[in-house]
Write a protein that binds this DNA or RNA. Sequence first.
DNA 1: TCCATGCGCGGCC
DNA 2: GGCCGCGCAGTGG
Length: 157
Amino acid sequence: MRYERTFGDIPGYPEGSCFGTRLELSQAGLHRPMVAGISGSGRIGANSVVLAGGYEDTEDFGDEILYTGHGGRDPETGRQVAHQTLTRGNLALACNKLYGLPVRVIRGARQRSPYAPEAGYRYDGLYSVDEYWREVGKAGFYIWRFRLVKMAVSGPR
DNA sequence: TCCATGCGCGGCC
DNA sequence: GGCCGCGCAGTGG
């Protein structure tokens, strides 16, 4: 697995590719972490993100996504019980905006949106991180919010 | 070292 | 049958 090869499309898995579980996504190289929704680091940026309904503040408009950063959740209930900080995956997504890096978007069936697959997970192509900011989420705690915008498909390189 | 948008099972309505 | 809470498994950033 070459690190520098982890941004952008993955050969053999075009947009629209479907998967049953996070394990399959990981093995395909589209999104390696088995649990985390954001893959990447604050140093190099985020390779991929998963929309799977884990955060109530995430909004899905198809070609535009308001993605919620991670952190501040109660491990038991999944509810926001604390403020999020601009660290780890959140910092990685901020890095994508800074350097103009694309991020792979995968939608899971648990995401409540008309754009989510009926079952399993689906790779929905590359998005750019247009902007990000901090705001108060539904639970009353600060969350980091990222505006992801679908990138035009430029065809084979 | 810790954290992370799983997964399956059993109980309840 | 669907929803929800709980507990456990296990990999990668």
